[in-house]
Structures are given as C-alpha cells and as structure tokens.
Deep mutational scan, measured.
Amino acid sequence: NQASVVANQLIPINTALTLVMMRSEVVTPVGIPAEDIPRLVGMQVNRAVPLGTTLMPDMVKGYA
C-alpha cells in the first residue's frame, strides 16, 4: 500500500510546509504520495490542516 502525507501537527492556513510538519502513513482515502514530501517543502497550505489529517492535492497551493 502506498503511504500518503499526513499532518504531524496543526498546520495553520497559509503556512509554508517544513519536513517536521509532515509524516508518511498508509491511510484511506489516499492523499498526496509520501514520495512528494521533498517537493512539498516550502509550499503553502490554503486551509488549516488539523493534526493527523491526510494532505490532499487541493490543500496545497501550486501542488495540483
């Protein structure tokens, strides 16, 4: 099963992502693939992302 990117903490709206904010986990539904974590660093979320939430492509500005 493919691992997805999951929020390791509450990520406030418009926050630029850092490695410490994300972890990989096998979840359903599948979100952004864990191998894209390096690409996500520095990108901003367009909404608040609660701890444990799977990051979906539409949550990250410029990802989709």
Rank of each mutant, 00 (worst) to 15 (best):
N1G: 15
N1C: 14
N1H: 06
Q2N: 15
Q2K: 02
Q2W: 07
Q2G: 15
A3P: 05
A3L: 10
A3W: 04
A3I: 10
A3N: 12
A3M: 13
A3D: 14
A3C: 15
S4Q: 05
S4G: 15
S4K: 02
S4D: 00
S4L: 01
S4N: 02
S4I: 02
V5D: 00
V5W: 01
V5T: 15
V5C: 14
V5P: 02
V6N: 02
V6A: 05
V6L: 13
V6W: 04
A7L: 11
A7F: 01
A7D: 00
A7V: 12
A7I: 11
N8L: 12
N8A: 15
N8Q: 12
N8F: 15
N8G: 13
N8P: 02
N8K: 15
N8W: 13
Q9R: 05
Q9L: 10
Q9W: 11
L10G: 11
L10H: 12
L10K: 08
L10C: 10
I11N: 00
I11W: 01
I11D: 00
P12M: 12
P12T: 06
P12A: 10
P12C: 08
I13R: 05
I13T: 11
I13D: 04
I13G: 04
N14I: 03
N14A: 06
N14P: 03
N14Q: 04
N14G: 10
N14W: 08
N14C: 07
N14S: 10
T15R: 05
T15A: 05
T15F: 07
A16G: 07
A16C: 05
A16E: 03
A16I: 05
L17I: 10
L17E: 00
L17Y: 01
L17D: 01
T18N: 02
T18Q: 03
T18R: 08
T18C: 08
T18A: 03
T18H: 03
T18L: 05
L19F: 14
L19I: 04
L19C: 08
L19P: 04
L19E: 02
V20Y: 12
M21S: 05
M21P: 00
M21T: 04
M22F: 13
M22C: 06
M22T: 03
M22K: 00
R23N: 04
R23M: 02
R23E: 02
R23T: 04
R23D: 02
S24I: 08
S24C: 08
S24N: 13
S24D: 06
S24K: 07
S24H: 15
E25Y: 08
E25G: 14
E25C: 04
V26F: 04
V26C: 14
V26Q: 13
V26R: 02
V26K: 03
V26G: 14
V27F: 03
V27Q: 09
V27S: 04
V27Y: 07
T28I: 05
T28N: 07
T28G: 06
V30P: 13
V30S: 11
V30A: 09
V30I: 14
V30N: 08
V30L: 09
V30F: 12
G31H: 02
G31A: 09
I32L: 06
I32G: 00
I32C: 13
I32E: 00
I32S: 02
I32Q: 01
P33C: 13
P33G: 09
P33I: 11
P33V: 15
P33S: 12
P33R: 11
P33A: 15
A34E: 14
A34Q: 14
A34S: 12
A34N: 10
A34D: 13
E35Q: 09
E35R: 03
E35M: 06
E35C: 15
E35L: 06
E35K: 03
E35A: 07
D36Y: 07
D36A: 03
I37N: 03
I37M: 13
I37A: 15
I37G: 13
I37C: 03
I37Q: 14
I37Y: 02
P38H: 12
P38Y: 10
P38N: 14
P38F: 12
P38S: 10
P38T: 04
R39M: 09
L40W: 02
L40I: 11
L40P: 00
L40K: 00
L40V: 12
V41G: 11
V41L: 12
G42Q: 06
G42K: 03
G42D: 08
G42V: 02
M43N: 15
M43F: 09
M43V: 06
M43I: 06
M43E: 04
Q44V: 08
Q44D: 06
Q44K: 07
Q44T: 11
Q44I: 12
V45N: 02
V45Y: 00
V45L: 09
V45K: 00
N46K: 07
N46A: 04
N46Y: 08
N46W: 09
N46E: 10
N46Q: 12
R47Y: 12
R47F: 09
R47M: 11
R47I: 06
R47W: 09
R47C: 05
R47T: 10
A48W: 03
A48S: 06
A48E: 14
V49L: 09
V49H: 02
V49N: 01
V49F: 02
V49Q: 03
P50A: 15
P50Y: 13
P50D: 11
P50G: 12
P50W: 15
P50C: 06
P50S: 11
L51W: 14
L51Q: 15
L51R: 07
L51N: 04
L51H: 07
L51P: 09
L51C: 15
G52H: 15
G52N: 10
G52T: 13
G52Q: 11
G52P: 00
G52D: 11
T53H: 15
T53N: 08
T53A: 10
T53W: 14
T53P: 00
T53G: 11
T53F: 14
T54I: 10
T54G: 05
T54F: 10
T54S: 08
T54P: 05
T54V: 05
L55V: 09
M56C: 14
M56Y: 08
M56A: 13
M56E: 07
P57K: 12
P57C: 14
P57M: 09
D58E: 08
D58R: 04
D58W: 12
D58G: 09
D58P: 06
D58H: 12
D58T: 13
D58V: 07
M59Q: 05
M59N: 10
M59R: 04
M59A: 12
M59L: 06
M59G: 06
V60C: 02
V60W: 01
V60Q: 01
V60T: 02
K61P: 08
K61S: 11
K61C: 12
K61T: 11
K61W: 09
G62S: 09
G62V: 04
G62P: 06
Y63S: 03
Y63E: 03
Y63I: 05
Y63P: 03
A64T: 14
A64Q: 14
A64W: 02
A64R: 04
